[in-house]
Simulated assay, not measured.
Amino acid sequence: MSSRRSFLQNTALGIAGSVTLPLLGKAAGLPSIDDNLNSAQDAEPLPVGVAGYTFAKFDLDKSIAMMKRLGVSNLSLKEIHLPLNASQEAVNTAMAKLREGGINVYTVGVIYMKTKEAVDQAFAYAKKCGVNMIIGAPSYDVLDHAEEKVKEYDIRLAIHNHGPEDALYPGPKDVYDRIKDRDARIGLCIDIGHATRAGVAVDKAVKEYKKRLFDLHIKDVSVAAKEGKAIEIGRGAINFPALVKALKKTGYKGVCSIEFEKDMTDPMPGIAESIGYFKGVMKAAL
C-alpha cells in the first residue's frame, strides 16, 4: 500500500508541476493540465468537480480559467462569485460565461440559512441559476420552512457538516438525525475533511447514509482530530481507497467536488496534486 500510495503521489506531483505555467498556457502553445487529467476521464466511475470556495481569492473569470487548466468541468457555485441577491440578468450573464468556459454548475452553496428570509433567498437563487440542488447549512428552527421550499421548488437540499467547531452539524450523523424523517429530497453533503476531524470514518458514513447522500466535498486533513489542518489529498489521514470502494459499493451517483483550503492564494499546484491522486485512486479501484 505504501509503495502504491507513493507512486500515486509522485504522479500527482508531476501533474502539479505543470500548473506553474501561465494560465494562458494552451493559447501560448504549452500543454494544458487537462491533457494529463482527462485522458482516462471516460473510464472514471465518479465525476469530479470543484467546490467554489476553493477559488475564494479569485474572481469568476480567473476561477473559470483555473478550472479549464485543471480539466474539471463540474462546479458547485459559491456566492463569492455570484451574489445571492444578483438580478436574473446578472445571473444569466454569469451562467452564460460559465457555459462558454465549459463549466457545468451542478449545484450552489454552501449557503447558510439562519432565517426564513435566508431560506427563501437561497431557493430563489437556485431557481435563477437553473440548478436542482442547494448545498446548505440551515439552522434547526428553519428546517420546517426549508422542507416547505424543497416541496414548492422541487429543489433538493444537501446539508453540509462543518466539523467539531460547528454547533449545528459537526458530522454526517448530526445531519442525518435531523432529516431522516423529512422529505426524501433533503439529504447530506458530506464534507469528508470536517467529518474526519469530528472522528468519523468517512467510508463507513458513506455506507450508512447512502440513501440520503447527495454530494461530497473531497479534501484531506493532516490528522483525524479537531486540530487537523487542510492538506493535499493523499498526504493526510483519510483512507481514500476505502472511501472510493465504499462509493462504488453503494452506487453513489453524485459529484465528488474537491474543496482545497490550503494555500488559497496560490491553490493550483495543490489542487492539481489532489485531483491527480484522487483520480489515481479511482483508476486503481476500477
Rank of each mutant, 00 (worst) to 15 (best):
I111D: 06
V110I: 14
N161I: 10
V175A: 00
N74F: 15
M66H: 07
G234H: 06
H81Q: 07
C129G: 04
Y125W: 12
A224Y: 03
L82F: 09
D174G: 09
A285K: 02
M1E: 06
E148N: 10
A272R: 00
R182P: 09
G49Y: 09
K149S: 02
K57L: 05
K180L: 06
F58Q: 07
V119Q: 03
K26S: 10
S139W: 15
K116R: 14
S87G: 09
D177S: 13
K127E: 15
G71A: 06
P164D: 03
Y153T: 04
I135P: 09
K68E: 06
L82I: 07
I155Q: 08
S63K: 05
E273D: 10
S39T: 15
L75T: 06
G199D: 15
D120A: 09
I159S: 03
L60A: 03
L84I: 14
S222H: 12
A284Q: 09
V150H: 05
I192V: 12
K207G: 05
C189M: 05
V119I: 13
I134W: 01
V221K: 00
N92I: 00
A205G: 05
G199C: 15
P269S: 07
E259G: 12
N104C: 07
F240R: 00
V255I: 10
K262P: 00
K151F: 04
G187C: 08
D174V: 11
E148Q: 14
K283T: 10
G187W: 15
A195P: 10
F278Y: 09
K57S: 11
L157W: 03
C129Q: 00
E44A: 14
A205W: 11
I111Y: 06
K245S: 12
G14I: 15
A184S: 13
I231D: 01
Y277A: 01
Y125T: 02
F58P: 12
N104E: 07
D181E: 06
E44P: 05
K210S: 00
I192K: 04
A201P: 07
A205V: 07
K68A: 03
A90Y: 15
F55W: 08
G130P: 08
A158G: 06
P83N: 07
D266W: 13
I80T: 14
D177L: 13
F58H: 10
K180N: 07
P31Q: 01
K211S: 12
V175N: 00
R69L: 03
P172C: 02
L247D: 02
S63W: 04
A124G: 04
Y106W: 11
L143I: 13
A224L: 04
E273S: 11
V255Q: 08
D34T: 12
I64P: 00
G14F: 13
